[in-house]
Amino acid sequence: MSVDAPRPRHLPPEDELEEKFIRASGPGGQHVNRSETAVQLRFDARASRFLTDPIRDRLIEAAGQLADQDGVITIRSESSRSQYRNRVEARRRLAAMIERASRPPKRRIKTRPSRAQREKRLSDKRHKQAIRRLRKPPQVDE
């Protein structure tokens, strides 16, 4: 089953996507109780031939709770009353996730705080320490 919208470049082939239509939650009266307009799009990232290994790993990591322990990513879209628009939205979200995962992460450049920053941090700590000391009742030695 194909969607007529322009196909995003980062979307896997149709045979790797599985769609299930479900009833949307929330208000809407009789229409929402009778029609299955919400879409559940499933993509098995681990078994995909479309992704390279580093992209697959980053995608599953970035998917978080949307991915199960087997690497199957499930995206649910129910924002529209139209089944077609929900299908397009779910596919767009999957393509955006894959596009973000396909960009390698930037390498962190290690930096050190300057001498002035270290001294300011220590003087701020001393200042806070003095304020806390003033809040305590005076110690009486016997």
Rank of each mutant, 00 (worst) to 15 (best):
1 M>S: 12
1 M>E: 13
2 S>L: 05
6 P>L: 02
8 P>K: 01
9 R>H: 03
9 R>S: 13
11 L>W: 02
12 P>C: 12
18 E>K: 07
20 K>M: 04
20 K>F: 01
25 S>I: 01
27 P>A: 07
29 G>E: 15
29 G>Y: 02
31 H>Y: 08
34 R>H: 03
35 S>N: 15
36 E>L: 12
38 A>N: 12
41 L>G: 06
41 L>A: 05
41 L>M: 06
42 R>H: 05
44 D>S: 03
47 A>H: 13
50 F>W: 05
51 L>H: 13
59 L>T: 10
61 E>N: 10
62 A>L: 13
62 A>D: 08
63 A>N: 02
65 Q>F: 10
66 L>V: 03
70 D>I: 00
71 G>E: 09
71 G>T: 12
71 G>Y: 08
71 G>N: 10
73 I>A: 09
74 T>L: 02
75 I>H: 10
76 R>D: 05
77 S>I: 02
78 E>V: 04
80 S>E: 09
81 R>W: 02
82 S>C: 03
83 Q>I: 10
85 R>I: 00
85 R>T: 04
87 R>V: 11
87 R>T: 02
89 E>R: 03
90 A>R: 04
93 R>Q: 15
94 L>C: 04
98 I>Q: 07
99 E>S: 02
100 R>C: 13
102 S>Y: 00
102 S>M: 03
103 R>C: 14
105 P>Y: 13
105 P>Q: 10
109 I>F: 07
110 K>R: 12
111 T>V: 15
112 R>E: 14
112 R>H: 08
114 S>G: 08
115 R>P: 09
116 A>D: 12
122 L>F: 11
123 S>V: 07
127 H>E: 14
130 A>V: 04
130 A>C: 00
131 I>S: 15
131 I>K: 15
131 I>P: 05
132 R>F: 05
132 R>T: 02
133 R>W: 03
134 L>D: 13
136 K>D: 14
136 K>H: 14
138 P>C: 00
139 Q>C: 01
140 V>G: 14
140 V>F: 10
142 E>K: 04
